[in-house]
Structure formats: C-alpha cells, structure tokens
Design a protein around this nucleic acid. Structure first.
Lengths: 95, 95
DNA sequence: ATCCTTGTTTCTATCAGCAGAAACATATAA
DNA sequence: TTATATGTTTCTGCTGATAGAAACAAGGAT
C-alpha cells in the first residue's frame, strides 16, 4: 500500500483520543502541533462569525493566516466545515 | 473543551480513510502533508532495519531528518512503533 | 456621497525544519 | 589493531509558512 493511504488508514483506525494525541506528538514537532491546534481554533472562531481582526488580535496572529482558514470554509464540500458544525453543536448541547 | 483535545477528538471520531485524507488536505498544506507521508515511510523503513544512509539516498533526504525518526522508535512506549508493527504485519499477511 | 467595518491581497522580514556536508561514536569484521 | 559499516551530532545556508504592515475591495450605516 502507498505510504499516503497507509498513514491515513492508521489515523482512521485510531479511536482513542489519547492515542491520537500521543501519535501526533511523536510524528509532529511541538511547533507543528501548536500550529495545528491554532488552525482548528481559528476555524472554529471564523465559523462563529467572529471578525477576522478580532481573531487575529486575540491570538496574536496575522491576517494572512486567517484568510487561509476562510478559504477552507468557503468551500461547500469542506469536511472541516461539517466537523466544525458537529463539534459546535455538541458544545452548545453541553451548556 | 480545549482546542487541543477537541481536534484530537475529531481525528479519533473519523473512521473513514477518505474523510481523514480530505480533512488533512484541508488543514495542512500540500508540503506539510508530503512531509508527513515521508516521515511515515521513513519510520517504516527504519523499523525494517534498512540502513539510514540507504534510506537517505532512496528518498533524497538528509540524515538529520532520519535521526529524528530513529529517536521516536527508540522509545519503548512509542505508539508509532506499535502502529508500525500492526501495519507491517498486515502487509506481510497480504503477500 | 462619505465614513466605517470587515474581508482579502500583497510586500518584506523572520523563524523552524531541513538539505548538504563533515565530523564523531560505536561496533563488527578482517 | 585497523578498516569498514552504521548510527548520531553539528554547522551553514535554503525554503516555506507566516508575522507585521499596508493597501485594496465590498457593504452597510449615517
């Protein structure tokens, strides 16, 4: 099997949150992982209609980084968008 | 929930290989994803006891990148090592 | 129309990961 | 012991993602 599909397969089979986290910490550097967390947080806030400049100020990041997230969410077929909705609905249920 | 755990949760809940792949393509750049694929491939080859200089030559990468993979696999508690074993066993079964 | 808010794009400089190369460490064989 | 193969570390320069800043575009409110 190609390395690409194989790695995706590994992720698909990982069901435990702790396992996923440990695996990510092993194959990504601390900075890469922090960047990834920030991207997710940024996508959440964009989806919640928080102004881009507010997000930039809150996290101390530049607008070019945010524009990128914005482009992802504009795509109607975006799976990130679906996953965000799922996550945010769950959070609102918890309140 | 913290963005960190939340993102890990998203990965843990993704069961379909195609979905994982699409999600990765959305939140990672093409280069970041290629790097990640290469890291996995490199880890596989290290685990198969292929000499580091052979791996470096085959993929056109430097040794410093390989040393890093080597360090991951030296850790007895490494989940990457467990996942590699699982993957390689499956591949040998297929033959 | 004018102003203000927000989204988007572009420019230069910075930083982390890594290439390329060399040196160093260790072990095994001759 | 000496030579060879392999693993590891270190150094300088390069590259891609992005910070910081500015400019541009599009609406909405007055």
């Amino acid at each position: 099997m190609k390395a690409q599909k194989e790695l995706m397969q590994v992720f698909a089979e990982l069901d435990d949150v702790e396992d996923v986290e440990q695996f990510c910490r092993e194959i990504l550097t601390a900075k890469e992982l922090d960047d990834l967390y920030l991207r997710w947080q940024l996508l959440k806030e964009l989806h919640q209609k928080i102004p881009q400049r507010t997000i930039a100020a809150n996290h101390g990041i530049s607008l070019c980084k945010i524009t990128r997230g914005s482009k992802i969410l504009k795509d109607k077929g975006s799976i990130t968008l679906k996953l965000l909705k799922k996550t945010l609905e769950r959070e609102s249920d918890e309140q």
